[in-house]
């Protein structure tokens, strides 16, 4: 039974993309369902509440992997790496770039599926930026509380704003 490796990889590739799409679609399906259920509520507030719940769960999932054993610089890079891994799981093309000092790193999203789905489900794009920001702020605050650090993250560019990439600066003030 010779295995056709190309065929197997392409099947897995399609399955992965399908799973990634389902994850994001499910979020917007629930968002629109909740908006329909509460017509007097602000749809963006509903969406952000959803992002907040995701953030708390995501932050908890990071705890077992956090390690300060190699010092603060390495820890900052580890945190950046966790964000990269998370968004790669959604299908984004994202990487970490060094900053101007060891206590600064840039996380650069060159491609991200979330804004496309926001469009497909008629959700405002600014809500997508706000949602991502909220997830990053909440999870980083959880990490800071857990490890006793004081890292900050700020958004410098955003794909939904037409800036080509999402660029976020992770740093210790």
């Amino acid at each position: 039974m010779p295995v056709d490796a190309e065929k197997e990889i392409s099947r897995l590739w399609r399955a992965l993309h399908s799973a990634q799409d389902s994850t994001i679609k499910t979020f917007y399906q629930w968002r629109n369902a909740a908006v329909g259920l509460f017509p007097n509520a602000n749809p963006s507030e509903i969406a952000l509440k959803g992002w907040e719940a995701m953030a708390h769960d995501l932050g908890k999932s990071y705890f077992p992997r956090l390690s300060f054993s190699k010092g603060e610089e390495a820890f900052l890079r580890q945190v950046a790496g966790l964000y990269v891994n998370t968004w790669q799981g959604y299908g984004a093309v994202v990487k970490v770039e060094k900053g101007s000092n060891p206590m600064e790193a840039f996380i650069k999203w060159e491609r991200c599926p979330w804004p496309s789905f926001a469009k497909d489900f008629a959700a405002p794009l600014k809500e997508d930026v706000a949602g991502c920001d909220l997830v990053l702020q909440i999870t980083l605050e959880m990490i800071n509380t857990f490890m006793g650090t004081n890292f900050k993250i700020e958004t410098q560019k955003a794909i939904p704003r037409g800036e080509g990439v999402c660029l976020r600066r992770l740093y210790k003030p």
Binding site: K60, F63, P64, M142, T145, F146, G148
Partner: peptide
């Protein structure tokens, strides 16, 4: 202090 636990 309000340090969360590592385990859920």
């Amino acid at each position: 202090s309000p340090v969360p636990q590592r385990l859920r």
